[in-house]
Amino acid sequence: MPAYMRTMLKIENLTATVGEEDEAKTIINGLDLEVPAGEVHAIMGPNGAGKSTLSYVLTGRDGYEVTGGSATLNGEDILGMDPEERAAKGLFLSFQYPVEIPGVPVMTFVRAAMNSQRKARGEDEISAPDFIKKSRELGQKLKLDADMLKRPLNVGFSGGEKKRLEIYQMMMLEPKFLILDETDSGLDIDALKTVSDGVNAMRSPDRGMLVITHYQRLLDHIQPDKVHVLAKGRIIATGGPELAHRLEKEGYDGVLGEVA
């Protein structure tokens, strides 16, 4: 089977809760989803549908408990792995709100991440000259100057710069599967284009992507192969890019009313 027809991310009947035991709330409730290699899938949904929760459950954040179902990446169960193991398997989450890491320069951080992943996969560390060369090339592409890459990660950067740094990390780490959580939030039109160009450059027959977004706007820049509507913790509708346009026109209530 060619790589691009292979299922990369496969989620079956997933349920997950958020919060402490006695106050745990079910946010993901019987979710099924398959994303093959080479495809970009968008997940859209109203506030509170469980979009960000899904990204945290898949990446293994504390406080999110899987209560049923499964999720595999390239056939491997990822739900039992630590977050760093999932990252080494090639799973990358671009955060809606990238976190400030005071005192750790961007390049130091990314090099630590890259070498940790390589070590976990039994590969050699990247040499300093190779790393710097790659970093410089990407920096130019993403309009990140060398001084910015020496500053502590995300500290004092604008919203747009933080998102560009997410794309920089993504391109440096070359993950197999990307989850973009509300990547368009806080971006002006120029920044949106830079970020989208970066994401599009990452499209490849052996890479899958899940783009989580509120608005259709981002999908003008990053054309999805499929669009899923997430509501009440489940995928309730799936279609082509035209579904996103319908959502934009009719609103979630219109589309949800129809399928409910």
Binding site: T59, E84, A87, F109, M114, A120, L173
Partner: peptide, 12 residues
């Protein structure tokens, strides 16, 4: 911060 770093592959 810890989750962000671990998501990038840096062990806890």
């Amino acid at each position: 911060q810890l989750f962000y770093m671990r998501q990038r592959g840096i062990p806890e």
